[in-house]
């Protein structure tokens, strides 16, 4: 698919994605990378300039939004402020002319699924952010969509709630077996939830793969840099990368490289060090059982690693 806005900005440039049924698939990338535009083309809000959208072997490129049978969840929730929780959730069923009794039953079930039983007659403005997001989820899921599209659905929640919702959403998706396309700029979120991730940059897909693959075997410099922390190296004219946790801090005598600690960031379960060695800064992560590491800025330290852990990137 390709999409150009105002005839100049290329938002999506030849993106091809193959998403399996029942998969939790994330589009990950910085803002402006084309992930949301891709999602909107799948949903039907935007028409691709080139390329087609197929679902279940059927070309839906020319099918209007309201006949695509897709659930959509927005970062702003986009609930109908003039309707109650029940009316919000029932909306999609009403549009499909589902009989009244069925609507009531399915809405009740959907609300139970997102643990909102008892909130039926509230208006969106009377709910918390997390509750609103659950209503949005129930509203999208109750129509039993072929695909559920989520555009940064957890972006407006605070960290704690976001983590809880990550678990819930993942669990719900697994239980219902729905195909879910998830747009996020948060790499931790993408790694935690997805079956597969497409990392996007400047309208192109840089790499598609399982979270472990994306993290452990980044194919490009951009992916390596965007996901987590990494030490970018240059060996024999080829770009290479080494994850901080693959570097061990050892006494200088046993080290492949020795230097001094520049900063030490205590992260709880681990400490992230910036070490000055060999004329550059190295990132090294040392996990420990909670006690504060004895090394402080200025301490001499040695770095050791296994060459097998070095990833060679495409140049």
């Amino acid at each position: 698919m390709s999409k150009t806005f105002d005839g100049k900005v290329v938002a999506v440039d030849g993106v091809t994605l193959d998403i399996a049924a029942g998969e939790f698939f994330s589009l990950l990338g910085p803002s402006g990378c084309g992930k949301t535009t891709s999602l909107r083309m799948i949903a039907g809000f935007e028409m691709p300039d080139a390329g087609r959208v197929h679902v279940g072997g059927q070309d839906i490129t020319d099918v209007p939004v309201h006949r695509r049978d897709m659930g959509m969840v927005f970062q702003s929730y986009a609930l109908f402020p003039h309707r109650t929780v029940v009316q919000n959730v029932a909306f999609g069923l009403r549009m499909r002319d589902v009989p009244r009794a069925d609507i009531d039953r399915r809405v009740a079930a959907a609300l139970a699924q997102v643990a909102l039983t008892g909130m039926e007659d509230r208006r969106p403005s009377q709910l918390s952010g997390g509750q609103q997001q659950r209503v949005a989820l129930a509203r999208a899921l109750v129509i039993e969509p072929r695909v559920l599209l989520c555009d940064e659905p957890l972006g407006a929640l605070d960290r704690k709630l976001r983590q809880q919702m990550q678990f819930e959403l993942k669990e719900l998706q697994r239980r219902l077996g729905v195909t879910l396309v998830f747009v996020t700029h948060d790499q931790e979120e993408a790694l935690a939830m997805s079956d597969r991730i497409a990392v996007m940059n400047r309208g192109r897909v840089e790499q598609v793969g399982a979270p472990t693959e994306i993290y452990g075997r980044p194919r490009t410099r951009f992916v390596a840099d965007f996901i987590g922390e990494i030490n970018l190296l240059e060996e024999a004219g080829k770009p290479r990368a080494l994850r901080p946790e693959k570097i061990q801090l050892v006494p200088p005598a046993q080290a492949r490289l020795s230097g001094t600690v520049e900063t030490a960031n205590f992260l709880g379960g681990a400490t992230l060090y910036r070490v000055q060695a060999g004329g550059r800064i190295w990132l090294a992560r040392e996990t420990h059982a909670g006690e504060r590491s004895p090394r402080s800025p200025g301490d001499p330290v040695g770095l050791a690693w296994n060459d097998a852990d070095i990833v060679t990137l495409e140049s």
Binding site: V65, H66, R68, M70, G92, I143
Partner: peptide, 10 residues
């Protein structure tokens, strides 16, 4: 997006 949500819902 409220209108888009409605459209997506059919």
């Amino acid at each position: 997006r409220i209108e888009e949500a409605a459209a997506a819902l059919g």
